[in-house]
Amino acid sequence: MTGLMAEKNREKSAGGAAGENPRRPCPCGSGKRYKACHGAGDDVIVTRPFEGLAAEPDLVAMREFLPSALAPLPLAKAGERPVRIATVLPGASAALVRPDGEILLGMQVQTRSGDLSADVAKALRWAQEAEPGTALPVVGPGLTGDVVRLQDVLDADAELDLVIHPDFAWWIPDDEPAPEITATVERANQVIMPTEAIGGDGVRAAYWVDTGSKAHLRWVRPEPEDALMAALARLSAAGELELGEGSRYAGAFRAHGLLVPVWDLDREMHAKEWGNPAAAFSTKLDQALAVTSDLTAAEHSARDALAGKQVTLR
């Protein structure tokens, strides 16, 4: 995994409006009152920070395991400067503003609060006011003032037009970079694991990665965990959990409120060869998700076995 997962304490949000009306709903979307959530002054962890955004699965992938990727950020109200979101920026910065004014926001950062959505929105606000050529090394710890989140500034129905790069050459904005910048890029390139998006009908946020010893398919799913686990259990009990010959279901991990099933794959097969099998599996999974009857005894047993193969990323 390439995500930089350093945990920092969140300081109390100190906005005048929030202080005047502590009974208002918290803007993080938790459903709690502000006073009992982000206004509490404690370590507040938003377990599903990108909920409600169509881009949620891609944002989770960019935060957790995609090495080098970029996408235009679908703002609800476009500003004067173009904005792109990236997996990681030089120095794991939260944001930088290029000399031409373009804003880049980083998902994998040095320091974070308990609300990734608010962190990225805060970095965006800083970058929109920063001078060209400025880098913002960290977001926090702590969010001051009124809490603004990605849900407040993005087009909620827009998915990310994600481009995965084989290296970090895009870090360099000109043709003749300084030697130290070139060396930084070369060091970063050495730790990249080959990664590609898996295409196919009904296939989204599914990524092939070669770790050097194994190849995997990591598929960020947007469904509620209970519904997804029940569907996977039905497929497992029916012997249909694999993606075809050369694949094996390895387990799943939770990341930012979503479940990410993982399959081991035959390293001799090219990433593009998994598009059709993934599309076929997507159809079967949709059918299993539509079933509303109780699990059978065999399916319950399969669900228990699958639950034993899950981990949670912190």
Rank of each mutant, 00 (worst) to 15 (best):
A156G: 10
A156S: 13
A158P: 10
E159I: 06
E159H: 14
E159Q: 15
D161Y: 05
L162K: 09
P166R: 10
D167H: 10
W170C: 07
W171R: 07
I172Y: 07
D174A: 11
E176R: 14
P179V: 03
P179E: 09
E180L: 07
I181Q: 03
I181M: 01
I181G: 00
A183E: 07
T184I: 09
T184L: 15
V185Y: 01
E186F: 08
E186R: 06
R187W: 12
Q190D: 13
Q190K: 10
I192Y: 00
T195G: 05
E196V: 09
E196N: 11
A197S: 14
A197K: 12
A197C: 09
I198G: 08
G199H: 08
G199R: 07
D201L: 12
D201S: 06
G202P: 00
G202Y: 00
V203H: 10
R204W: 07
A205H: 12
A206F: 01
W208D: 02
W208N: 04
W208F: 11
D210R: 01
T211L: 14
T211Y: 10
G212A: 08
G212T: 13
S213Y: 12
S213C: 08
A215W: 05
H216L: 15
V220H: 00
V220M: 01
P224A: 08
E225I: 03
A227L: 00
L228P: 02
A230N: 08
A231P: 03
L232A: 02
A233M: 05
A233R: 05
R234T: 03
A238Y: 00
A238L: 00
G239A: 07
G239F: 09
L241W: 06
L241F: 06
E242Y: 05
E242M: 08
G244H: 00
E245L: 04
E245I: 04
E245C: 02
R248Y: 04
Y249W: 10
Y249G: 05
Y249H: 06
A250E: 02
G251K: 11
A252I: 12
F253I: 04
F253V: 08
F253R: 11
H256A: 04
G257K: 10
V260S: 03
W263L: 06
W263S: 06
W263T: 09
D264Q: 07
D264K: 05
D264R: 04
D264C: 04
R267N: 06
R267A: 06
R267Y: 03
R267Q: 12
R267L: 05
H270E: 11
H270A: 15
H270Y: 10
H270D: 12
W274Y: 11
G275S: 15
N276Y: 01
A278Q: 02
A279H: 11
A279R: 06
A280C: 00
A280G: 05
F281R: 11
F281P: 12
S282H: 02
K284S: 01
K284H: 00
K284R: 04
K284Y: 01
L285Y: 03
D286R: 12
A288K: 02
L289M: 12
A290C: 00
A290W: 02
V291I: 12
V291L: 13
T292M: 01
S293D: 14
S293C: 11
D294C: 07
D294V: 09
L295P: 03
L295R: 05
T296E: 13
T296L: 13
T296A: 14
A297M: 06
A298I: 03
E299S: 00
S301Q: 06
S301Y: 05
S301K: 07
A302C: 09
R303K: 07
